[in-house]
Design a protein around this nucleic acid. Structure first.
Lengths: 226, 226
DNA sequence: CGTGGTGTAATTGCATCCAATCAACGTTCT
DNA sequence: AGAACGTTGATTGGATGCAATTACACCACG
């Protein structure tokens, strides 16, 4: 069929399927609360239900899907409190991750981060902004050689992605300018080699976003209904 | 059989099996590097290999087991760098978790923490110490109503457990006394309602342990050989 | 008219069976 | 004799089929 795929049979179909579903969730094709059936997943990827279940379990541990025994799987929904918690975790962890990454960043890398910040400030398309924002921050962590921290931060970004999209749509141009200023500040500190200061600005950046987000409880009530 | 068990068929055998294996790993029955075969797991729990595989995948995401496609599963091994990374994460996260928990702790809870700290200082048995230490710290987080942070901290404790055991055996009485002093300091700050100070002491506690640990690379080399 | 109970359909969970892959051993060629 | 190669055994990965559980709709009853 046109939408079905053929597994290349390299021994880990579950992980590959999970990867594809993850992309679809992050792109907003499956909004929070959507039910995901094993049969549909299996059929879509031309596999049996066994790897489909494994994929769902992987996504559950990624925090993108909620599994209930004997019942089914749904795309995760977040309450405001849960989202707030994740942002507090990010505020604590991302400066640490940046301290792992910064020493390994070359001048060219930092230049590219600056270009991303500039391009981000110029665009008006929400989806494009989200893409660039993710590329900017995760790009600033590209030098980190960590075994767990890097993956964890990506996971935290992923679980909050749908709400970041809704939030970005709702904020005005003024709050956005502050965001862009902070991005450029981070780039400057990195260029100066002042890792500690870059971490401080980054923590403030995340903290401010969290406080802004807490003023928009309607983003969560609307979705959490299920 | 005598050692085999009967699943109560409540719809999530994989999770239950994973729980049992997790306990066994944490108790040191399966040291890092030990191979775990699906057939053995299935047989031990009177189940088929399907839930056994699910259990292993759960443990993989817990960081307790390393899975290689088409090859097998081994109890995770940590390098010194990885262990150091985890301690840095704990240093950033556990004060945050404590700030979630502390307001909900009753006077009786804090009293019990003090009793644990005292008992811990009195014992000479390593396994008993580890048990009490875990009960003390995780007990101080019992008031936290978090969705991810609590579980993550437990996961970080679990993955480093075998090395904490080896490390505890190696340190002398002097370093131990500092540990116990810090425990009592945390209890005092909590009793005073000074959450911020409790967090500071806790961060220092974890930080000191990390620095001590980095002076014992032999704990990792001996195991990592596989 | 609303509420509780029951039966059926749909979906998940687990066991069994077969295929694919990897590791180890013995063999053969240089 | 040493190293590369092919073969065999063991182990994991995936597909199918059946049992158990749950959800939903319909009906009876208060």
């Amino acid at each position: 069929m046109s939408t079905t795929e053929r597994a290349t049979r390299d021994g880990d179909a579950g992980a590959r399927i999970a990867e594809r579903i993850r992309e679809q969730i992050l792109r907003g094709h499956y909004p929070p609360g959507t039910r995901i059936r094993q049969v549909d997943v299996a059929e879509q990827f031309g596999a049996s239900r066994v790897p489909a279940r494994e994929a769902l379990r992987i996504l559950e541990h990624d925090g993108l899907v909620r599994l209930v025994a004997n019942t089914g799987a749904w795309v995760s929904t977040l309450t405001l409190a849960e989202c707030d918690e994740i942002y507090r975790m990010r505020e604590a962890l991302e400066p640490l991750l940046l301290s792992y990454s910064a020493p390994a960043l070359e001048a060219a890398d930092i230049e590219r981060l600056g270009a991303l910040a500039t391009e981000m400030a110029a665009t008006d398309d929400v989806d494009r902004f989200l893409e660039l924002d993710r590329e900017f921050h995760l790009g600033s962590y590209a030098g980190a050689q960590t075994s767990q921290l890097g993956e964890l931060v990506v996971k935290l970004w992923n679980t909050t992605q749908p709400y970041r999209r809704a939030y970005t749509r709702s904020i005005g141009g003024d709050a956005r300018r502050i965001v862009h200023d902070e991005h450029h500040l981070i780039v400057s500190s990195l260029a100066d080699g002042d890792i500690e200061d870059a971490g401080r600005v980054l923590a403030g950046h995340i903290r401010r976003t969290r406080r802004q987000l807490s003023r928009h409880p309607e983003l969560f009530e609307s979705i959490t209904a299920r």
